[in-house]
Nucleic acid binder design. Structure first.
Lengths: 261, 261
DNA sequence: CCATTAGGTTCCAAATATTGAGACCAAGTT
DNA sequence: AACTTGGTCTCAATATTTGGAACCTAATGG
């Protein structure tokens, strides 16, 4: 009673199961879900049934596995167009890419995680983990930290509670205090670095996208590998980066702006 | 009792509302949804509430509008990777693009509609309506007709019932009979044409992707404008196209294959 | 400037859908 | 052949959803 936190009935539970399947990231068996979810057999079974014939999941009869359904990609298309910064930012990202020629990510906050909503690929073949639609932890990425640093106290509190502080590398922030300490630094600099905090050998510089009323709605980063650039080198991109975030912020303010998570 | 057709309780209804919002394709007001949905005020309100704080919808307080939520793009990423043909087909599409240098679409069936799950853009600046995640009617597109033509009787029946037969252009099939008649032709040819049936000035050639057991799981099309090619010209792509669909079919058979809608 | 209305939100008892223990079934293992 | 493991089905108890109507609030108009 002191911590209900969630009160969304059947629909909420069903969606929880979708998340579960999504998290696994591959087709998954009934029994596997049975242990990770808290539900009894019959209940889980019915949810799976419902979600499957709604097209939110797909069921492979032969392998007897569940995977995410195609209806989601249809729905997501609409989400991407209407609720993400991607359409507003597209032209500006194109321009930024031409200017600096490195990998660029456009990210927003989704339930305490960083969600990549668009990107431009470096011409050099170099893959980061990030693809459009992919998520990453907020506490150890440039895009994540810079959004957190500019959040309102209320939203920040909620987001911090959602951080698991998984220590990916030696430089990853391991607790709330350490992370919060960096925020002041980020705010006074106007941008954040990722110092190989998520992936060994990958660094980035990220700046916040602010609405004219001061609200953060997302961020952009330029990411590269330590074999090609140092943090100092990345700092050279700062003017171009801030110019881009400024423009996107302006555009998003006048345009239909998305409500943040 | 004679035609329940849908029996998915609360979850089904909630998802129906998501579809509703997606269909509008722009942020939408409460009152607008109230008339298109069948639900009473209070009920709709609660659903919107639930979906919003689940991140499936986003609410713009200022404009008082609902739009699709970012959680969907996160979930869809997983769907696209696990349940679509896109990952299996990626390399083959790349190759096909190099070979013929025209716009290519990879499509699957989703609830009676054609869903584009990937594409390769022609180097010539030429935009079709199709983007990844976008949907189109099945009865008037090459990718749609060719999938229908190879479906099992049972699945076909279901799909046909979902066709609205909107007459986009002069050549669009206007009824079930006319459409069915073309299926034999398609099957004996092994591919389908789109004769400006969806968009004036856009034609395409499409071939089915078949699992080794004969089941259709998707299709590929090469689309172009009538100012650049004729149907005869498109037919020249047939060998390359069939080669690609064959390979994708093989790959999909051995690989984790998605369950069709 | 008050009256009126349209768009949203909240309440609550009745109607309905969800829930889960356990029975059941199929297929593979020992 | 008995035994597991993985999955599906049934049914009564229970919790949730439901929607009419009251209630807000901010616009609109007279």
């Amino acid at each position: 009673m002191t911590k209900p936190e969630k009160k969304d009935g059947t629909v909420g539970k069903a969606l929880e199961i979708l998340d579960l399947v999504a998290e696994v990231g591959r087709p998954v068996r009934f029994s596997e879900l049975l242990v990770t979810s808290q539900h009894p057999k019959a209940t889980l079974y019915r949810f799976l049934q419902t979600l499957t014939n709604q097209g939110m999941l797909s069921y492979d009869e032969e392998k007897q596995t569940y995977a995410m359904g195609l209806r989601l990609v249809r729905l997501a298309h609409s989400a991407w167009q209407n609720s993400s910064l991607a359409p507003v930012a597209a032209d500006i990202l194109d321009q930024l890419e031409k200017e600096i020629g490195e990998t660029i990510h456009l990210a927003q906050m989704e339930n305490g995680q960083v969600l990549f909503v668009d990107k431009r690929r470096s011409s050099v073949l170099f893959e980061t983990l990030a693809q459009t639609g992919r998520v990453a932890p907020a506490h150890c990425t440039g895009v994540g930290k810079v959004i957190l640093a500019y959040m309102s106290a209320e939203r920040l509190e909620r987001a911090l509670r959602q951080q698991a502080f998984v220590p990916y590398t030696a430089t990853t922030h391991r607790d709330r205090e350490s992370l919060i300490k960096e925020f002041e630094e980020i705010r006074s600099a106007g941008f954040a670095f990722d110092r190989e905090e998520h992936e060994q050998g990958i660094i980035s510089i990220a700046a916040p996208i602010l609405l004219n009323n001061g609200r953060v709605v997302g961020s952009i980063s330029v990411a590269t590998s330590t074999t090609r650039f140092t943090l100092k080198d990345l700092e050279a991109f700062k003017p171009a980066l801030l110019n881009a975030t400024q423009k996107i912020g302006d555009a998003a303010t006048t345009w239909q702006f998305p409500s943040p998570s």
